[in-house]
Design a protein around this nucleic acid. Structure first.
Lengths: 202, 202
DNA sequence: GCATTTATTGTCATTTGTGACAGTTTAAAT
DNA sequence: ATTTAAACTGTCACAAATGACAATAAATGC
């Protein structure tokens, strides 16, 4: 009975709007007014559905990290295992390069949001811990993938290459505000390949 | 005659304070109040000496890019030329790695400020042009250095490696808010070495 | 001491961001 | 039609950020 609730869809819209605002204006620049405009709702509705600013930010962080986790683990599981290797044309590392550097999979806003969160983490101990864990997990996973492909390489070397791949991935999308990311997409991918090749030679 | 002006030193203090604030709070988070606190002046004095917010931001951008330019060109000129090569123990590329990745030369705030400017450039066409030029000059210079060391390597390859070095440099310091930059300093440098080595092998 | 110039302090008005809430409208169940 | 629960609208109060300016204090040349 009563009018049906739109809470879930509205929260969805609001968080999507918040996400876009953060990519464009940063966290501090994403006022409730802008979020409201971006979502097409009144500011009082934003508050009605999503609570105050603190709750909103907390929900955004949860959501971003959760979605990131989902997409990433989906990607990990899509990789060929040792058993299924023979059926697959592309190697794990080739698929990794595609995932990180092909423009079809790139979400220009994603890294900007992540970087905004990292920056904010400097003033928020709880967020800092979460982002540290996120970053650590990211590098560990890549190192693990590389381990499968280059079992003979020692760990420090794998970690260095992992960090290199991540740096290329991050830096490429962080140039989006300058409109230079397309210009550097190919170089970024090439550099990533050089790093991977360095694991073959000893 | 009249009371001696402290304008220049005050502006110096104010811009330094602004710089530190930007590294900590971002541009939007650097309110005049915070800048005043950080510089130890009253807000009205900040306004008195440095003008309104718009002028302040413009001065900061000028200053950051100018100092960056000076330090960088100082570094470039300190590199051994073809003539002075024989007197020098370290190669250009070794010196480059030191400059980019040794913690003695690293200014933790510098890259954070630059990244804040790049982010802001997304909403400021004039700033965008300047930051584009800054980034282009940076990569071009590194490519040029690499050219001297690896004259046989083709240009696309050099550009890719340049972009890789810059990415490692940027990404390393952008982890400062997470306190993970020391942890990754060595991997970053190693990855940079692998990239450089990839120019030797063909 | 006096005039002059600038630093320095303090205050007020305006705008913007935020929180709270009263009142209205809408869509369902009975 | 009535009830009910929720969406929606509008508005007020408060705090923060900014801009403008008046008033005072300090340092210099004469």
């Amino acid at each position: 009975m009563g009018r049906p609730s739109k809470k879930e869809e509205r929260i969805e819209e609001i968080l999507n709007a918040f996400y876009r605002c953060v990519a464009r204006y940063g966290i501090d620049g994403s006022t409730l007014e802008r979020i409201a405009d971006e979502s097409g709702l009144k500011r009082s509705l934003v508050r009605h559905f999503a609570g105050n600013r603190e709750e909103l930010e907390s929900m955004l962080v949860d959501r971003v990290l959760e979605q990131s986790q989902q997409q990433w683990s989906g990607f990990i599981e899509s990789l060929p295992t040792k058993e299924s290797k023979e059926n697959c044309k592309k190697s794990c590392t080739e698929l990794l390069l595609e995932g990180l550097f092909s423009d079809q999979y790139s979400d220009g806003e994603y890294i900007l949001v992540i970087e905004s969160l990292i920056f904010s983490a400097g003033r928020d101990a709880a967020l800092r811990q979460r982002m540290q864990a996120w970053m650590q997990g990211f590098t560990d996973d890549i190192t693990f993938i590389l381990q499968g492909q280059f079992p003979k390489a020692d760990n420090a070397r794998l970690e260095a290459v992992s960090f290199g791949l991540i740096s290329l991935y991050f830096n490429l999308d962080s140039l989006a505000p300058l409109g230079m990311n397309q210009q550097y997409r190919q170089p970024a991918r090439s550099a990533a390949e050089y790093l991977l090749n360095s694991l073959s030679t000893d």
